[in-house]
């Protein structure tokens, strides 16, 4: 039986120290986490990369075009001519990278397989070993329903859910939140790339980057009252999350403007886009506006009018949280 390697605390600290040393010697401007970068900059950059021909003439996303789309987005985000250089601004050899996907919606509306493969390809080209990359969500069964194949062990990218390794025994707390974290987050990875989807949520309004962290904890059901506010913001304040999340690549190839979070084909559309940022708040704000525009186009009420505007985004940006920018004048949107 293959076994998932859960690093001992000693191993993990050694790795973390090695990475930190590397960062120090190379200037380490990119050492800032996504949230810190968002808070520190005058403006947060959000890149929207779109390709109308992403699926060619069929329904399946074209892998080659997806890789090209990811490259365009990353180069625009990091102002680099070469995609590998862009990724090297984000990660260093020796680091362990987790891609937290969202697979609740099955094949209809989950993080796109071709997108994940493109990210993994570029991470390896940037020097990350294949088996130091973990693609994960809370449950392996849900991942398989979404099209991912569970893969454990060997010299290849790892795919599995928290159900295979459990949650930490001890609680971590911030504000309204007290939860146990996935051991994949705490023991298997020191870099988190958040790969959510863009969709409506019946309780929270929208579910994008910040809410995708509900899949990291053992008790998300406790945090849905009051439109998930302030729970989502408090959860994202946990140091184990905040210090790891360096990038968000939101899959908006297929998106949903109504009826979420479960897949409702009648309320989905092909946006054929990626939304990429290092600021989860700015990204969520931008994604929310895209959903509102689609709702208006479909002659639906605004989320505010339906009494389910995603107020948690403003909470995440407030003085108590400072997880990023929700002021549109301080968000620089770049379309490529």
């Amino acid at each position: 039986m293959n076994q998932i390697h859960i690093a001992s605390r000693r191993d993990f600290l050694k790795r973390a120290l090695t990475s930190a040393a590397l960062l120090r010697t190379t200037g380490g401007a990119w050492l800032l986490t996504a949230a810190e970068r968002g808070a520190a900059q005058a403006k947060s950059k959000v890149v929207i990369a779109q390709d109308a021909l992403l699926r060619g003439t069929g329904f399946t996303v074209d892998s080659r075009r997806m890789l090209s789309l990811v490259d365009r987005a990353m180069q625009a985000l990091f102002d680099r001519d070469n995609p590998i250089e862009a990724w090297r601004r984000l990660v260093r050899p020796g680091e362990s990278v987790g891609l937290k996907v969202n697979t609740l919606g099955g094949r209809g509306i989950s993080s796109n397989l071709q997108l994940v493969e493109a990210i993994c390809e570029r991470l390896q080209e940037a020097g990350i070993k294949a088996n130091d990359i973990v693609v994960w969500d809370r449950d392996s069964g849900e991942m398989e329903h979404a099209g991912f194949r569970v893969s454990i062990g060997g010299n290849r990218v790892q795919y599995f859910g928290t159900d295979r390794v459990d949650y930490e025994q001890d609680l971590v707390m911030h504000g309204s939140v007290g939860s146990r974290l996935s051991k994949i987050l705490t023991q298997r990875t020191n870099v988190l790339i958040n790969v959510p989807v863009l969709k409506d949520h019946d309780g929270a309004g929208v579910t994008i980057a910040l809410k995708n962290m509900y899949g990291v904890i053992h008790n998300p059901n406790k945090y849905h009252p009051n439109g998930c506010d302030p729970y989502i913001a408090d959860l994202n304040m946990l140091p184990e999350i905040r210090t790891r999340m360096r990038l968000i690549i939101c899959d908006a190839t297929t998106a949903m403007y109504e009826g979420g979070p479960a897949y409702k084909p009648e309320h989905s559309w092909k946006e054929n886009a990626l939304i990429v940022s290092q600021d989860p708040v700015a990204l969520d704000y931008t994604g929310w506006q895209i959903i509102e525009r689609k709702r208006a186009q479909m002659e639906l009420k605004t989320l505010e009018a339906e009494n389910r505007a995603p107020h948690y985004i403003a909470t995440a940006a407030d003085a108590q949280h400072r997880l990023g920018m929700n002021d549109p004048t301080r968000i620089s949107t770049v379309e490529v």
């Binding site: 039986m1 293959n2 076994q3 998932i4 859960i6 449950d139 392996s140 069964g141 454990i152 599995f160 859910g161 159900d163 295979r164 390794v165 459990d166 025994q169 051991k183 023991q187």
Partner: peptide, 16 residues
């Protein structure tokens, strides 16, 4: 008892 930190080839318990 789920063995802490020891991964398994199959999920702990099937949700369905």
């Amino acid at each position: 008892h789920p063995a802490a930190g020891i991964p398994s080839e199959v999920g702990q318990q099937k949700q369905d």
